[in-house]
């Protein structure tokens, strides 16, 4: 009875509304505060569209791996990637280029934070972390997983699963902070910007959790553009795009990322990240 209709409409749905377009599409996941993504980045799309003279669309994604997939499938031609996801994406799409990075991303760093019960104090030398419980951020995060794991393993000389009593992946920097604050894990690794913002806003009780070590700096977030954009959108498009990104001065737009400004970047800036990812076995 009613199923026949349901089924029919179901079939129709699979073959309808296929949109073909020459829209320039981009995606971005900010490292802090993922609320109101579309509202915020639609403004960025409007800015890009005005400057580039093509239709620009923003697609929200949930994770770095989803962003990489969308980039690889040419569903987006431009993406705001983390350090590691950018490397992954450029390996999968030959000819794609890192064209700009955040000002802060030239010297990004991670913090190691600890619950007060560990009685670990801030040091310049690498702290002794053996047999504590430890949480990373999300699995594919550069500042919450890749670089901290690398620094810890190279400082201690052992793999992390030997060093710590228990390892978790909180999934997010904010969650790493709240979990270490609650003592669920004793120690954690976190993106420095997320931590600083949380402290500034008073979202974290620094008598319960605090920074005990900060990592050396490394390059992180960057804009990566697809190889074929000059062909699709006209010669010189890539250059124009780079200029437009670097020329983004509106604080309201920059706060969406959040970055102070954008500066030029190149693929070679991210060679250290690729080396590290290979060293800890996250890339083949």
């Amino acid at each position: 009875m009613k199923f026949t209709g349901m089924i029919l409409a179901g079939v129709l749905s699979l073959f309808s509304t296929v949109a073909v377009s020459e829209t320039f599409t981009f995606t971005a996941i900010p490292d802090e505060d993922e609320s109101q993504l579309r509202t915020r980045f639609d403004k960025v799309a409007v800015y890009l569209s005005e400057q580039l003279g093509v239709e620009v669309k923003y697609i929200p994604v949930k994770s770095y791996s989803a962003a990489v997939t969308a980039f690889r499938n040419n569903q987006v031609q431009l993406a705001w990637f983390g350090g590691l996801s950018g490397v992954q994406a450029r390996r999968l799409v030959p000819g794609s280029e890192a064209i700009a990075q955040g000002f802060e991303d030239q010297f990004f760093k991670s913090y190691i934070i600890a619950h007060h019960s560990t009685e670990l104090a801030a040091t310049d030398s690498f702290p002794v972390l053996n047999d504590y419980t430890f949480t990373f951020g999300s699995k594919d995060s550069t500042s919450g997983r890749l670089m901290p794991q690398y620094f810890i393993e190279s400082n201690v000389g052992q793999s992390v699963d030997k060093i710590f009593k228990r390892i978790g992946f909180s999934g997010d920097h904010s969650r790493t902070i709240s979990q270490v604050e609650a003592g669920v894990y004793q120690v954690g690794a976190v993106n420095y910007k997320v931590w600083d913002t949380a402290v500034e806003k008073g979202d974290v009780d620094t008598s319960k959790v605090n920074v005990i070590w900060q990592s050396p700096t490394y390059p992180d977030y960057q804009w990566t553009v697809h190889s074929g954009v000059d062909k699709t959108f006209g010669a010189g498009f890539k250059e124009k795009l780079t200029k437009t990104l670097i020329g983004m001065k509106d604080k309201d737009l920059l706060d969406s990322f959040p970055r102070e400004s954008f500066v030029p970047a190149s693929n070679s800036d991210y060679e250290p990240i690729e080396r590290v990812a290979k060293a800890i076995g996250m890339l083949d």
Partner: peptide, 16 residues
């Protein structure tokens, strides 16, 4: 609901 669900479905990207 059903025709509406089909009609208001997010845009399908080009099938590759």
């Amino acid at each position: 609901y059903l025709p509406l669900a089909v009609y208001f479905l997010p845009e399908l990207p080009v099938f590759q």
